[in-house]
Amino acid sequence: MIRRGLARLARPLFLARSLFWDEVRCPGCGRVAPAVPDLESSLCPDCRLALAPREGAACPGCGQVSDMPPELPQALPVLCPACQESPRPWGRLLCWGAYEGRLRELILAYKFEARLDLGRQLQECLLAAFERGAGTFPELCACELVVPVPLHPRRLSWRGFNQSRELARLLARRRGLPIRQEALVRVRRTVPQMELDRARRAENIRGAFAASPEVLAGRTALLVDDIMTTGSTLEECARMMRAAGAAQVHVLVLARA
């Protein structure tokens, strides 16, 4: 299994430059376009537009975008009816965009095809989601450590990397926060959540994680994952972290399904 994971990582990365020095190939769609030396992003204009942050006020509990018309802005996003009735086990949840279109394509390619050349673009989106959220909710600035949602060791050896940890690296570096993977470990192998319906996901993930009181007690943690679907995995992680003594847990995801 380890050999298979290494083989996936050793797979040649998608060609970023064409045969001509004055052209680049967009890592998102593969289109060749003129190089722009002073532009940080290597994505083409269409892909950059497709990755623009979503519009609308999002529920700070689950990330669901409100149907409120844009001409009626709120002073602060408020909890949706579902989160008011059944509060989530975390403080705030932030996400960059909906799990659809180009963002979904890039996440799937990065995660399952070892397209590590897409990592920087996705890291930038995750960082921007946090910075935007911190401007609205100052309590997010109290985060003291970053905790990626862990993979089971067998899944990690197969994939070769934990996408949540890799996506969090830029944020951690810019914010000066340590990534503490040992704060949360996966102790039970489960069926991939994406293979289950909504009703079975919570049962499938229950008891799959263990949290460290030595790392978390009295501290505010930022829990990071790539995708939130029903939220069952994140809820289980946050509950275990709070049970281990975390003062607060906030959640940051790249995409919300």
Rank of each mutant, 00 (worst) to 15 (best):
G63H: 13
G63T: 09
Q64T: 13
V65M: 12
D67K: 05
D67G: 11
M68F: 04
M68Q: 12
M68P: 03
P69F: 07
P70Y: 03
P70G: 01
E71T: 13
L72E: 12
L72N: 04
L72P: 02
Q74D: 03
Q74E: 08
Q74I: 02
A75L: 13
A75Y: 00
L76M: 11
P77V: 03
P77T: 08
P77E: 09
P77F: 04
L79Q: 08
L79H: 10
C80N: 01
C80E: 05
A82R: 08
A82K: 04
A82V: 01
C83T: 02
C83Y: 07
C83R: 06
C83G: 10
Q84G: 10
Q84L: 15
E85C: 07
P87H: 01
P87M: 00
P87W: 02
R88S: 06
P89R: 01
W90D: 05
G91R: 07
G91Y: 01
R92A: 02
R92E: 02
R92Q: 06
L93N: 04
L94R: 04
C95M: 14
W96C: 13
A98R: 12
A98T: 14
Y99W: 11
Y99F: 14
Y99V: 00
E100M: 02
E100Q: 15
E100F: 00
G101N: 00
G101Q: 10
R102S: 15
R102G: 13
R102Q: 15
L103R: 05
